[in-house]
Computed example of a mutant assay.
Amino acid sequence: MEENVPLVWVSTTGSRPGLRGGDQASRTDGGEASVSNDVAVQARDFGGCTILTVPGDLDVALADEIGWAVNAAGSRHVVVDLGRAAAVDPTAAVVLVGLHERVRARGGGVCVVTTDQDVRAQLERAATVAAPPCFTEIGDALEASMTERQSGFARLA
């Protein structure tokens, strides 16, 4: 059963360099999610794991937003849901693989959810060391992420 947690919406209209538009990303205060037509990546916390849902194909701007959302949340365990993506821009794949390597260096990892073999292949081609593990179901990705998190706690004990 999923926890009842507030949603955070990350918008492509933020004022960071390289983004379209000029409005700041809208966020919630723990109540209902603020929704706009400019929503690109949906982010939410699930028991210490950040789940990022991409609404379609992954381009460089969305890959950058994923990185910003992970950094803002201070996440060490991330699930990127690319279930609606039929394509990943090669540069975006490099950005996502780089994020995975940085998060691994902090003791965590990035898991990707996709059923598309082309998306998996693009991530594998972009990896110089190890591509993020891919899962077909978000539940499996969450389980892998939580297992990694628990093994990290055990190493600290």
Rank of each mutant, 00 (worst) to 15 (best):
N4L: 11
V5F: 03
P6M: 07
L7K: 07
V8A: 14
V10C: 07
S15G: 06
P17Q: 06
P17K: 08
L19M: 13
L19E: 10
G22A: 14
G22K: 12
G22W: 14
Q24V: 09
A25P: 13
A25C: 10
G30Y: 09
E32T: 12
E32S: 13
S34K: 15
S34C: 14
S34Q: 13
Q42K: 12
F46T: 09
G48Q: 05
G48H: 07
D57F: 02
L58Y: 02
A61W: 00
L62Q: 10
A63W: 04
A63K: 01
A63Y: 04
D64S: 11
E65Y: 00
I66Y: 00
G67K: 02
W68Y: 14
V70D: 01
A72Y: 06
A73L: 02
R76K: 15
H77Q: 11
R84D: 14
A86T: 12
A86F: 06
V88F: 02
D89L: 04
P90A: 10
A92K: 06
A93R: 07
A93E: 01
V97K: 04
V97T: 10
G98K: 10
E101L: 13
R102Y: 05
R106G: 11
R106L: 14
V110H: 04
C111K: 06
V112E: 03
V112I: 15
V113Q: 05
T114V: 04
T114F: 01
D116F: 00
D118M: 06
V119Y: 00
V119R: 01
A121V: 00
E124A: 01
A127W: 00
A131G: 02
P133K: 04
C134L: 00
C134P: 01
F135P: 02
T136D: 12
I138Q: 13
A141G: 07
A141V: 04
A141R: 03
A141L: 04
L142K: 10
L142V: 07
E148G: 13
E148P: 03
Q150N: 08
S151K: 11
S151P: 03
S151N: 14
F153M: 14
F153Y: 13
F153I: 09
R155N: 12
R155H: 14
L156F: 12
